[in-house]
């Protein structure tokens, strides 16, 4: 489940926040929060998307670098919530 989930999240991020970007540049461990790709507004959009699409609930303290900074971490967060 990990890889398809990651690919779907990656697609969303590329489409929503990085239109026109080469998908190869968005690596699994590229920091998204600390580099400013995911600012507060983008983070909210992402959270709403994840909650809606995967039926999970995220908490305010999870909207941070530890949980959302990279594709790997986002995928881990979502998959652990879906269990």
């Amino acid at each position: 489940m990990g890889e398809p989930l990651k690919a779907a999240i990656k697609d969303f991020i590329l489409k929503e926040f990085l239109p026109g970007e080469d998908p190869a540049n968005l690596t699994d461990d590229l920091p998204l929060v600390t580099t400013g790709i995911l600012d507060s507004i983008a983070t909210l959009k992402l959270v709403l998307h994840l909650e809606e699409k995967y039926g999970i609930t995220l908490e305010a303290h999870e909207a941070d670098k530890e949980h959302l900074d990279t594709l790997d971490r986002i995928t881990f967060l979502v998959s652990s919530k879906m269990k």
Partner: peptide, 21 residues
């Protein structure tokens, strides 16, 4: 953002994202 913004937005989501923001 960590101590005030996100906790407020998450609590107010039921008012709609724009209002909460």
């Amino acid at each position: 953002q960590k101590l005030f913004y996100y906790p407020a937005v998450f609590k107010l989501r039921k008012l709609g994202t724009t209002n909460a923001l």
